[in-house]
Simulated assay, not measured.
Amino acid sequence: MERASTSLEFMAFCLSSALLLNLVICANFTELFQPYWAPDHIVTEGDLTKLTLDNVSGCGFESKSKFLFGKASLQIKLVEGDSAGTVTTFYMSSEGPIHDELDFEFLGNTSGEPYLVQTNVYTNGTGNREQRHTLWFDPTADFHTYSLFWNRHYIVFLVDNIPIRVFINKEKDGVPYPTSQAMTIRGSVWNADDWATQGGRVKTNWSHAPFVSAFRSFEIDACELLPEADDTVAKCSGLRQFWWDKPSLRKLDRHRNHQLKWVRARHMVYDYCKDTGRFTELPRECIK
C-alpha cells in the first residue's frame, strides 16, 4: 500500500506507519506533482496551491507517478463570484487515444447561481457518460473534499465522503471498464465558455479575472507505479491483497447506498442514462 499526503495529520500518520511497514510515501505538493501547463499560473504556499485563469491562459498540474486502483482525495475552494465560463477540474487520466479517465469538472456560473458538478468516465478513449449535480453547500465559501475511489468492481465519486456517483464494472455485459491503464492525478482551471455555463450562452467576463481556485490536503492511497519502474501494472493487478480488494469493498454498503439515493433524488440534474434524445439506443451500462 502506498500513501501520500500534504495534510499535517496525515503526514504524522505516514511517518509513524513507515517505521512499521516501510510501505508509505509522504510528500508535499512539489514532490508529488508537477505543472503540465502554464507553471507561471500555479502558486504553492505551504499546503495551499492556487491555480489561476486569466485572458492569457489557464493552467494545470499532474502527479509525477501513475496509479492503478485505490483512492485519491483533495480539498478545493472554487472560484468565487461570477465564474461563468470557467471550469475547475480534478481528474485521473492515462495517456493516448484509447485512454481511461475519471473526471470531476466544476462548471462555473453567474453570481448567486449554483455550481454544477459534472462527472464523466472514459474507457478505451470513449466518454459521453456525463452526470451533473448541484451541491448542498456553497463550494466557494470554504474547502470541501472531493475523492475518486477505484477498484476492480466499481468507481465511486465522493463529495465530503458522500457518494454522488457509482460506475459499476459490467465487463461481463460487454461494457469496457478501466482495469489495466495506470493514471496520473491532475487538476486544472481553464476557460470553456463555449459550453460550460448554460450550454455556452453565458460567456466568461474577463473584467472579473483573474479567476482562482485553491487546492490543498492532497491524499493518495493507491497502488503507485513509479516512472522508472519495470513492474508495470502487474504490481497492482496481481494476487496481492490491497485494502481496496477486500470483500467488504466489492459493493457499497447500506449506509452509502442510502446516501447515494439521497443525492440522486435531491441534487442530480442530468443523467446520460436517461437522455433518450441524445441516444437512440441507451449505452449498455445503463440497462439494468
Rank of each mutant, 00 (worst) to 15 (best):
R3I: 15
R3L: 15
S7N: 01
L8S: 08
E9G: 11
M11N: 06
C14E: 15
S17G: 15
L23G: 12
I25F: 15
A27Y: 11
L32N: 15
Q34Y: 01
P35W: 12
W37L: 02
A38L: 00
P39F: 03
I42S: 00
I42A: 01
V43Y: 01
T44P: 08
G46Q: 13
D54C: 09
E62H: 14
K64G: 08
K66I: 08
F67E: 06
K71H: 10
L78N: 05
L78G: 01
S83N: 00
T86E: 12
V87Y: 00
T89L: 02
T89D: 01
T89G: 00
F90W: 06
F90V: 09
F90Q: 06
F90D: 04
Y91E: 03
M92H: 07
S94C: 06
S94A: 10
E95L: 11
P97N: 01
I98Y: 02
E101K: 14
L102I: 11
F104R: 00
L107M: 01
G108V: 07
G108L: 04
T110Y: 00
G112V: 14
G112F: 11
P114Y: 04
Y115Q: 06
L116M: 03
V117W: 02
Q118R: 07
T123L: 00
G127T: 03
N128H: 09
N128E: 10
L135E: 00
W136I: 02
W136G: 01
D138C: 15
H144C: 09
H144D: 08
Y146L: 13
F149D: 02
W150A: 00
Y154S: 10
Y154R: 07
V156G: 08
V159F: 12
I162G: 09
R165I: 03
V166M: 09
V166D: 04
V166Y: 06
F167L: 09
N169Y: 07
N169F: 06
G174Y: 07
T179S: 10
T179M: 11
T179L: 11
Q181K: 12
A182W: 03
M183C: 03
T184M: 05
I185W: 05
I185L: 12
R186H: 13
G187C: 10
S188Q: 04
V189P: 05
W190L: 00
N191C: 10
A196D: 00
T197C: 01
T197E: 02
R201G: 09
H208Q: 15
H208W: 14
A209I: 13
A209N: 14
P210L: 04
F211K: 05
R216M: 10
D221T: 13
C223D: 14
L225Q: 08
L225K: 03
L226P: 14
E228W: 15
E228M: 14
A229I: 01
D231N: 01
V233M: 13
K235Q: 03
S237N: 12
S237C: 11
F242H: 15
W244R: 03
W244N: 05
K246R: 14
S248W: 08
L249C: 12
L249W: 13
R250V: 08
R254Y: 11
H255R: 09
R256H: 05
Q259C: 15
Q259R: 14
L260C: 04
L260H: 05
V263D: 01
R264K: 11
M268I: 08
Y272D: 03
Y272L: 06
K274D: 08
R278D: 04
R278I: 05
R278H: 08
F279A: 14
P283S: 04
R284G: 13
I287H: 12
